[in-house]
């Protein structure tokens, strides 16, 4: 549903968009029904000469039905939405698929510091690459990210991936994403973190395997060759 507004560039973006569309359909229906009945009643029972109001205590059967039925239907819609929400939540946040690479993302006041595995693909080894403004990843590879913060609460957010997770100081939070589109996308900080919150911009550069290998080779720290 969001496709027109923002591209889907990660594997679970589709699931989240589907859920938003499901909620829109169910909730939109009830919204239109309620507003429709609302405006119709205002017009139908507007004050006119000779028109007199009725006395209803709300317990008359024919009137009460009009509340009981929508009440039950809203309950059913809510159950459907709950199932959809928990399903998507399980896929994105609770279940970690096996990772091809692991990166460490550290938020600090007003910049992101990325620690990426070098050519050996292992984190915390000699050939790790430290960058602060862009995270270079390979398309169609599953990445785990270890999210930390050095000072205040930040939020690692990549809108096109539909990825958003707070970085809480003192905690290491693990999440995953799997890019499906190449290109350069925004990384935002989505939690107010002080004066420089507005400049905490990073770029998520999704490259083809060849480009990525070339980038790694170029940026591996000289000593590790």
């Amino acid at each position: 549903m969001l496709h027109g507004l923002i591209p889907e560039a990660s594997s679970f973006a589709g699931n989240i968009d589907w859920l938003i569309f499901l909620v829109l359909v169910l909730v939109g229906f009830w919204f239109i029904v309620a507003e429709g009945v609302f405006f119709w009643l205002i017009f139908r029972f507007r004050s006119r000469p000779g028109h007199k109001g009725q006395y209803l205590t709300g317990h008359e059967k024919h009137v009460e039905r009009w509340i009981k039925i929508p009440h039950a239907l809203v309950l059913i819609c809510d159950v459907i939405i709950i199932i959809g929400a928990v399903h998507v939540w399980y896929i994105v946040k609770m279940h970690l698929p096996p990772a091809d690479y692991t990166v460490r993302v550290t938020g600090q006041q007003w910049d992101w510091v990325f620690q990426q595995p070098g050519a050996d693909g292992k984190l915390d080894t000699k050939d790790d690459i430290y960058t602060t403004d862009s995270l270079h990843v390979e398309v169609n590879k599953t990445y785990h990210f270890l999210l930390e913060s050095r000072d205040v609460i930040h939020d690692f957010s990549v809108p096109v991936f539909r990825l958003k997770q707070d970085a809480v100081p003192g905690r290491t939070i693990t999440g995953w994403f799997r890019p499906t589109e190449t290109g350069t996308f925004d990384i935002q900080c989505a939690k107010l973190c002080g004066i420089g919150h507005g400049v905490m911009v990073g770029s998520m550069v999704v490259e083809t395997p060849a480009q990525h290998a070339a980038w790694v080779a170029k940026n591996t720290p000289t000593s590790a060759q």
């Binding site: 007003w110 510091v113 720290p221 000289t222 590790a224």
Partner: peptide
């Protein structure tokens, strides 16, 4: 692994950290 493991080059650190 501190950045010390890889040879520390002030220029790249300046370009990545301080240039912001």
């Amino acid at each position: 692994a501190a950045p010390a493991a890889a040879p520390f080059s002030p220029e790249t650190t300046f370009k990545t950290v301080c240039a912001a």
